[in-house]
Protein backbone atom coordinates (compact mmCIF):
# COMPACT_ATOMS: atom_id res chain seq x y z
CA UNK A 1 0.00 0.00 0.00
CA UNK A 2 2.86 2.36 0.88
CA UNK A 3 4.54 1.51 -2.43
CA UNK A 4 1.37 2.54 -4.23
CA UNK A 5 1.44 5.94 -2.52
CA UNK A 6 5.09 6.41 -3.53
CA UNK A 7 4.48 5.42 -7.15
CA UNK A 8 1.58 7.81 -7.63
CA UNK A 9 2.69 10.67 -5.41
CA UNK A 10 4.53 12.65 -8.13
CA UNK A 11 1.53 12.39 -10.44
CA UNK A 12 -0.85 13.41 -7.67
CA UNK A 13 1.30 16.42 -6.75
CA UNK A 14 1.43 17.57 -10.36
CA UNK A 15 -2.28 16.99 -10.84
CA UNK A 16 -2.94 19.06 -7.72
CA UNK A 17 -1.14 21.97 -9.41
CA UNK A 18 -3.52 21.65 -12.35
CA UNK A 19 -1.21 19.74 -14.69
CA UNK A 20 -3.51 18.36 -17.40
CA UNK A 21 -1.33 15.39 -18.29
CA UNK A 22 -1.04 14.26 -14.67
CA UNK A 23 -4.79 14.63 -14.22
CA UNK A 24 -5.37 12.46 -17.27
CA UNK A 25 -2.97 9.85 -15.91
CA UNK A 26 -4.89 9.72 -12.63
CA UNK A 27 -8.12 9.40 -14.57
CA UNK A 28 -6.73 6.52 -16.61
CA UNK A 29 -5.56 4.77 -13.46
CA UNK A 30 -8.79 5.06 -11.50
CA UNK A 31 -11.66 5.73 -13.91
CA UNK A 32 -12.57 2.11 -14.59
CA UNK A 33 -12.66 1.12 -10.91
CA UNK A 34 -14.69 4.19 -9.97
CA UNK A 35 -17.04 3.68 -12.90
CA UNK A 36 -17.85 0.15 -11.73
CA UNK A 37 -18.53 1.42 -8.21
CA UNK A 38 -20.76 4.14 -9.66
CA UNK A 39 -22.67 1.58 -11.67
CA UNK A 40 -23.23 -0.64 -8.63
CA UNK A 41 -24.40 2.34 -6.60
CA UNK A 42 -26.59 3.98 -9.24
CA UNK A 43 -27.70 0.76 -11.05
CA UNK A 44 -27.75 2.67 -14.33
CA UNK A 45 -25.02 3.24 -16.95
CA UNK A 46 -26.07 6.76 -17.85
CA UNK A 47 -26.13 7.91 -14.21
CA UNK A 48 -22.79 6.14 -13.62
CA UNK A 49 -21.23 8.15 -16.49
CA UNK A 50 -22.58 11.41 -15.07
CA UNK A 51 -21.34 10.56 -11.60
CA UNK A 52 -17.89 9.65 -12.91
CA UNK A 53 -17.51 13.13 -14.39
CA UNK A 54 -18.75 14.79 -11.20
CA UNK A 55 -16.35 12.72 -9.11
CA UNK A 56 -13.22 13.46 -11.12
CA UNK A 57 -14.01 17.17 -11.46
CA UNK A 58 -14.59 17.35 -7.71
CA UNK A 59 -11.49 15.29 -6.94
CA UNK A 60 -9.26 17.52 -9.10
CA UNK A 61 -10.70 20.65 -7.49
CA UNK A 62 -10.04 19.25 -4.01
CA UNK A 63 -6.75 17.53 -4.76
CA UNK A 64 -4.66 20.20 -3.04
CA UNK A 65 -6.37 19.17 0.21
CA UNK A 66 -5.23 15.53 -0.20
CA UNK A 67 -2.56 14.94 2.47
CA UNK A 68 -1.51 11.34 1.65
CA UNK A 69 -3.04 10.05 4.90
CA UNK A 70 -4.53 7.27 2.77
CA UNK A 71 -3.96 6.06 -0.78
CA UNK A 72 -5.37 8.20 -3.56
CA UNK A 73 -7.51 5.17 -4.49
CA UNK A 74 -9.11 5.02 -1.04
CA UNK A 75 -9.63 8.80 -1.08
CA UNK A 76 -11.34 8.94 -4.47
CA UNK A 77 -13.33 5.80 -3.67
CA UNK A 78 -14.78 7.54 -0.62
CA UNK A 79 -15.61 10.61 -2.74
CA UNK A 80 -17.28 8.29 -5.26
CA UNK A 81 -19.44 6.57 -2.68
CA UNK A 82 -20.42 9.79 -0.89
CA UNK A 83 -21.32 11.50 -4.15
CA UNK A 84 -23.40 8.55 -5.33
CA UNK A 85 -25.25 8.35 -2.01
CA UNK A 86 -25.91 12.11 -2.09
CA UNK A 87 -27.18 11.85 -5.65
CA UNK A 88 -29.49 8.97 -4.73
CA UNK A 89 -30.79 11.00 -1.78
CA UNK A 90 -31.29 13.99 -4.06
CA UNK A 91 -33.32 11.78 -6.36
CA UNK A 92 -35.28 10.74 -3.26
CA UNK A 93 -34.43 7.09 -3.74
CA UNK A 94 -35.71 5.07 -0.79
CA UNK A 95 -32.77 3.39 0.85
CA UNK A 96 -34.98 1.19 3.11
CA UNK A 97 -32.64 1.35 6.05
CA UNK A 98 -34.97 0.52 8.93
CA UNK A 99 -33.48 -0.29 12.29
CA UNK A 100 -34.08 -4.02 12.39
CA UNK A 101 -31.94 -6.63 14.06
CA UNK A 102 -32.18 -10.16 12.75
CA UNK A 103 -29.38 -12.00 14.51
CA UNK A 104 -30.02 -15.34 12.87
CA UNK A 105 -30.36 -14.15 9.33
CA UNK A 106 -26.64 -13.98 8.54
CA UNK A 107 -25.98 -17.60 9.48
CA UNK A 108 -29.07 -18.62 7.47
CA UNK A 109 -27.37 -17.24 4.34
CA UNK A 110 -24.48 -19.66 4.55
CA UNK A 111 -26.85 -22.60 4.29
CA UNK A 112 -28.87 -20.89 1.57
CA UNK A 113 -25.91 -20.48 -0.76
CA UNK A 114 -24.75 -24.08 -0.41
CA UNK A 115 -27.15 -25.41 -2.97
CA UNK A 116 -27.19 -22.32 -5.18
CA UNK A 117 -25.13 -22.29 -8.33
CA UNK A 118 -23.07 -19.11 -8.32
CA UNK A 119 -21.95 -17.22 -11.40
CA UNK A 120 -20.68 -13.66 -11.87
CA UNK A 121 -23.29 -12.71 -14.44
CA UNK A 122 -26.17 -14.13 -12.35
CA UNK A 123 -25.00 -12.33 -9.21
CA UNK A 124 -24.62 -9.04 -11.12
CA UNK A 125 -28.07 -9.46 -12.58
CA UNK A 126 -29.54 -10.30 -9.17
CA UNK A 127 -27.82 -7.26 -7.59
CA UNK A 128 -29.52 -5.07 -10.15
CA UNK A 129 -32.89 -6.39 -8.99
CA UNK A 130 -32.28 -5.67 -5.29
CA UNK A 131 -33.96 -2.64 -3.69
CA UNK A 132 -31.53 0.34 -3.68
CA UNK A 133 -30.78 0.23 0.05
CA UNK A 134 -30.02 -3.48 -0.01
CA UNK A 135 -27.91 -3.17 -3.15
CA UNK A 136 -25.80 -0.34 -1.72
CA UNK A 137 -25.02 -2.06 1.58
CA UNK A 138 -24.41 -5.35 -0.23
CA UNK A 139 -21.97 -3.60 -2.61
CA UNK A 140 -20.18 -1.66 0.12
CA UNK A 141 -19.62 -4.80 2.21
CA UNK A 142 -19.18 -7.53 -0.39
CA UNK A 143 -17.38 -5.63 -3.16
CA UNK A 144 -15.92 -2.37 -1.89
CA UNK A 145 -14.41 -3.98 1.21
CA UNK A 146 -15.91 -1.76 3.90
CA UNK A 147 -16.76 -3.26 7.29
CA UNK A 148 -20.00 -2.58 9.18
CA UNK A 149 -18.43 0.18 11.27
CA UNK A 150 -17.33 2.02 8.12
CA UNK A 151 -20.68 1.43 6.42
CA UNK A 152 -22.49 2.80 9.47
CA UNK A 153 -20.39 6.00 9.18
CA UNK A 154 -20.85 6.30 5.41
CA UNK A 155 -24.60 5.69 5.53
CA UNK A 156 -25.18 7.38 8.88
CA UNK A 157 -26.83 4.29 10.33
CA UNK A 158 -26.04 2.00 13.25
CA UNK A 159 -23.74 -0.98 12.94
CA UNK A 160 -26.61 -3.33 13.72
CA UNK A 161 -28.74 -1.79 10.96
CA UNK A 162 -25.87 -2.30 8.54
CA UNK A 163 -25.62 -5.96 9.62
CA UNK A 164 -29.32 -6.63 9.40
CA UNK A 165 -29.66 -4.91 6.03
CA UNK A 166 -26.75 -6.89 4.66
CA UNK A 167 -28.34 -10.12 5.88
CA UNK A 168 -31.61 -9.20 4.23
CA UNK A 169 -29.85 -8.16 1.03
CA UNK A 170 -28.02 -11.50 0.85
CA UNK A 171 -31.18 -13.43 1.52
CA UNK A 172 -33.03 -11.55 -1.17
CA UNK A 173 -30.17 -12.02 -3.63
CA UNK A 174 -30.09 -15.76 -3.03
CA UNK A 175 -33.83 -15.92 -3.59
CA UNK A 176 -33.37 -14.16 -6.92
CA UNK A 177 -30.49 -16.49 -7.82
CA UNK A 178 -32.55 -19.55 -6.91
CA UNK A 179 -35.52 -18.30 -8.88
CA UNK A 180 -33.17 -17.64 -11.78
CA UNK A 181 -31.58 -21.10 -11.66
CA UNK A 182 -35.02 -22.73 -11.57
CA UNK A 183 -35.91 -20.71 -14.63
CA UNK A 184 -32.67 -21.76 -16.37
CA UNK A 185 -33.34 -25.42 -15.47
CA UNK A 186 -36.85 -25.21 -16.87
CA UNK A 187 -35.56 -23.68 -20.10
Amino acid sequence: MTAQIDIHKPIILKAAKGNAKAQKQLYELYAKAMFNICYRMMNNIHDAEDMLQEIFCDAFNRLDSFRFDSTFGAWIKRITINKCINELKRKKVTLELKEEITPDSISDDFEDTEYTQLSVSHIKHAMGLLPDGYRIIFSLYMLEGYDHQEISEIMNITVSTSKSQLARAKKKLIEVLKAGSMQYNLN
Binding site: Q23, E28, K32, A33, F35, R40, A48, Q53, V120, I123
Partner: peptide, 23 residues
Protein backbone atom coordinates in the same frame (compact mmCIF):
# COMPACT_ATOMS: atom_id res chain seq x y z
CA UNK B 1 -13.51 -9.63 -8.38
CA UNK B 2 -12.40 -8.88 -11.96
CA UNK B 3 -15.72 -10.10 -13.31
CA UNK B 4 -17.51 -7.56 -11.12
CA UNK B 5 -15.31 -4.71 -12.39
CA UNK B 6 -15.41 -5.21 -16.13
CA UNK B 7 -17.39 -2.15 -17.22
CA UNK B 8 -15.51 0.61 -19.04
CA UNK B 9 -16.50 4.28 -19.04
CA UNK B 10 -17.25 5.76 -22.46
CA UNK B 11 -14.42 7.08 -24.63
CA UNK B 12 -15.85 10.58 -24.40
CA UNK B 13 -15.87 10.66 -20.61
CA UNK B 14 -12.37 12.15 -20.20
CA UNK B 15 -13.01 14.79 -22.87
CA UNK B 16 -16.04 15.99 -20.94
CA UNK B 17 -14.05 16.14 -17.69
CA UNK B 18 -11.14 17.92 -19.40
CA UNK B 19 -13.50 20.47 -20.89
CA UNK B 20 -15.09 21.08 -17.48
CA UNK B 21 -11.79 21.57 -15.70
CA UNK B 22 -10.55 23.75 -18.60
CA UNK B 23 -7.46 21.78 -19.53
Amino acid sequence: ADGFNDLEPSQDSWNKIAARIGH
